[in-house]
């Protein structure tokens, strides 16, 4: 195993920063330190987004070539990214320097390209979810799956509200499901997730988990 000299340093930094931020949540006196660290983290997060975009570009540049059957998609992605970036910069220059446009071109791209696409994807998600619910009994034919299946039907029917065909008891059932079992189950899951989150965070603070390459 390779031992890097910067591993202890990065580990120490990660642990120290984590403890300070955590302690600042409980100790008001160190809020300023905590805030400074958080601001630094925000900047780094924004830079990380830029790094991620560069990484995205790099990956798809590598995918260009005759060997990759999806190289066409990568090319489209690169062109769209660069085009959007250029348009955004133009909008930013115009807005910041001349105060003329309020990101009109960027809004146009978003409204006419990204929004319909993502909305359509969500619509297809609805189809996929419907299909998943319909096929759950084929995947797992057990009590929990059957319960899951019929609870979906009841909640959906409880949401159905067209006056001539409205069934009041379905609304009651739906509300009861959402308030009692769904909420209880969600609470239980969230408690479990919270416990897992705490342990994960503690492992990070202890330095046993070092996703930062230490």
């Amino acid at each position: 195993m390779n031992i890097k000299l910067n591993a202890p340093v990065s580990t120490a930094i990660a642990i120290g920063v984590g403890i300070i931020v955590l302690a600042g949540y409980f100790i008001p006196s160190i809020t300023n330190i905590r805030f400074a660290l958080l601001r630094t983290g925000l900047v780094l997060a924004a830079v990380a987004l830029l790094v991620g975009i560069i990484n995205l570009l790099t990956v798809h540049f590598k995918k260009l070539g005759p060997d990759n059957e999806n190289s066409g998609y990568s090319l489209i992605l690169i062109i769209a990214l660069l085009l959007t970036l250029v348009i955004g910069i133009i909008d930013m220059v115009q807005s910041y320097m001349f105060g003329q446009s309020n990101f009109q071109m960027t809004n146009w791209i978003f409204t006419n390209i990204q929004l319909p696409i993502e909305t359509s994807l969500l619509a297809v998600t609805a189809v996929s979810l419907t299909y998943a619910a319909a096929s759950i009994l084929r995947k797992r034919m057990d009590l929990f799956s059957i319960t899951f299946f019929f609870v979906i039907l009841l909640v959906l029917l409880g949401s159905f509200s067209i006056p001539p065909a409205t069934l009041p008891f379905l609304h009651i059932i739906r509300d009861w499901i959402v308030r009692v079992p769904a909420l209880g189950g969600a609470r239980g899951l969230l408690l479990g997730i919270a416990l897992g989150t705490i342990t994960t965070g503690i492992r990070i603070l202890m330095g046993t988990d070092r996703p930062y390459g230490g």
């Binding site: 609805a126 419907t130 299909y131 619910a133 319909a134 096929s135 759950i136 009994l137 084929r138 034919m141 059957i146 299946f149 979906i152 039907l153 959906l156 029917l157 949401s159 159905f160 509200s161 067209i162």
Partner: peptide
Amino acid sequence: YNIGIIITVGTMFIGGLANGVLSL
């Protein structure tokens, strides 16, 4: 929205029963 709900429920119910029978 309600039409979509009822169609979804109907489709889900029919498909679920069919898959349940096939699973059995």
